[in-house]
Structure formats: C-alpha cells, structure tokens
C-alpha cells in the first residue's frame, strides 16, 4: 500500500512549548487512518500541522511525494488536503446547495463544479433532498453530512475529519459513520481523529495512538483495540455504576 501522507520527526507547538515531540506517522492511500489519544496528547496539533495552520519547528511533512511543511493553508488545500472541522462550519443562512457549491471556490471551471456536484449528490442524497433549505435549519448530524459533501467538491486526495461523532445522537452517529465508510469505498483516503475510540477504530484500517506528542502505538484498528495497555489506558473500563 502506498503512503499518501507522512510526518517524520515533527516538532511543533505554541508559545508555551512543544506539543508534538518527534512525531512520526504515516497515512496509507485509500484507507481510513484513525488517530486516538487522551486530551492534550496533540491530536488537534497534528491536524493544524497537516492543514498548514501551524508550521512545524523541525521535521518533514510529505504529502503525495512532496514536502508541504510550511506551505500556506491555501496551498495545502489546493494540493488536495481538505479538513472538516470539529465545530459546525456551514453558512447557516445559505441553502444546503449553495454551501456545497462554495466548497468548490478554488475551481474556476463552472462546468467542472456542476459535474462534481452531480457526483456528490449520488453519494450524499441529502444535498438533493434538502438542497433548497437553509443549512441552519438542519439538525447537527445532517449538517455534518453536508460538510462532508462540501469538502468533496475539491476532489481531495486526503479528507481529514476532526471528531465527526461529536454531539451526535446514536442514530445519527450511525448514519454519519456509514457515510465515512462510503467515502472510503468511493476511493478517498481519510484521516480521522476520534475521541469515540471504539467507533473510530472499528471503522479504521489503521490506527495511531498518540501520547504526549508522539506515537505510542500504531497498527491495524483491531491490533490497537486488542492491545491490553491501550485498552487499559485509553479505552477505559465501563464507568462504574453507582454504589
């Protein structure tokens, strides 16, 4: 399997010090890679480095054979890495269809925009069904799906999802996760950050466990789930019921 994205020996952080300390991880093409780890392990920082919002102090970020560390977020976007943020980022007063079309703002060719829109409508029926409605009127899970649809407008090589499960009720969560799998089946490479570890790992071909800014463990989702240390440290036992 070819490697689409590789971070090697990355050090990065903010005013107060380094959050990522000699971090090395790779994302194979055509699969789902899930990053898990405790709060503060540096998951958000990894995403900021990949999207160009944070320039690593040391180390390399190689995407599709080219170094992208230090490029501007816009350049990285045009290279084919699109990120779906944790918070809801649709424009609430615009329609669902307008929101999705906006995802193609880097494209100049209107015909190409229309062509991609049709492809996306096949994968995300909601764009057709609710296309004329205000995006703000959709529920949280529906908005998430529209965000997925929007990010595909740039025909990205890598889709980065930051905690797509956040704030979703169980029924909606299932739909959203199925849609993530469907994107993978449609040939996208997906990098997923999840706090809902079991949901994330059950979906992922490859898993990376972060701890204090470096990789504690990497392997297939099943291997990581089966690792007793990891299960103990991060997956938690069942919450103790009240005495």
């Amino acid at each position: 399997m070819s490697i689409l994205l590789e971070l090697h020996g990355v050090w990065a952080g903010y005013d107060g010090g380094d959050v990522l300390r000699d971090l090395t991880l790779s994302v194979p093409a055509g699969s789902i890679t899930c990053v898990v780890g405790p709060n503060g392990a540096g998951k958000s920082t990894v995403l900021r480095v990949i999207s160009g919002q944070l320039i690593p102090r040391r180390g390399t970020v190689v995407f599709d054979g080219e170094e992208i560390g230090g490029l501007s977020p816009r350049k990285i976007l045009s290279r084919g890495i699109v990120q779906v943020a944790q918070e809801h980022t649709l424009f609430p007063d615009m329609t669902v269809r307008e929101n999705v079309e906006l995802g193609g703002f880097l494209l100049r060719d209107r015909a190409e925009v229309a062509r991609r829109l049709r492809q996306i409508e096949d994968l995300f029926p909601i764009v057709t069904d609710r296309g004329g409605e205000r995006a703000g009127a959709l529920s949280g899970g529906q908005q998430r799906l529209v965000e997925f649809a929007r990010c595909l407008m740039l025909d990205p090589k890598l889709v980065v999802l930051d905690e797509p499960s956040m704030g979703l009720d169980p029924k909606t969560l299932r739909t959203v996760l199925q849609q993530v799998a469907a994107m993978r089946d449609a040939g996208r490479t997906i990098l997923l950050v999840e706090q809902n570890v079991r949901a994330g790992l059950s979906l992922a071909g490859q898993a990376v466990v972060l701890e204090s800014g470096h990789v504690r463990l990497a392997g297939t989702g099943a291997q990581v789930l089966a690792n007793p240390d990891i299960a103990h440290l991060y997956l938690g036992g069942a919450p103790r019921s009240l005495a």
């Binding site: 010090g17 300390r21 405790p38 503060g40 392990a41 204090s212 800014g213 470096h214 991060y234």
Partner: peptide
C-alpha cells in the same frame, strides 16, 4: 526526545 513531556499524560 527523552525529556519529560511538557503536557500531562494520564501515565
């Protein structure tokens, strides 16, 4: 890299 991490970890 061998220094104690700047952030708290559960460990």
């Amino acid at each position: 890299p061998g220094d104690p991490p700047p952030y708290d970890s559960p460990a």
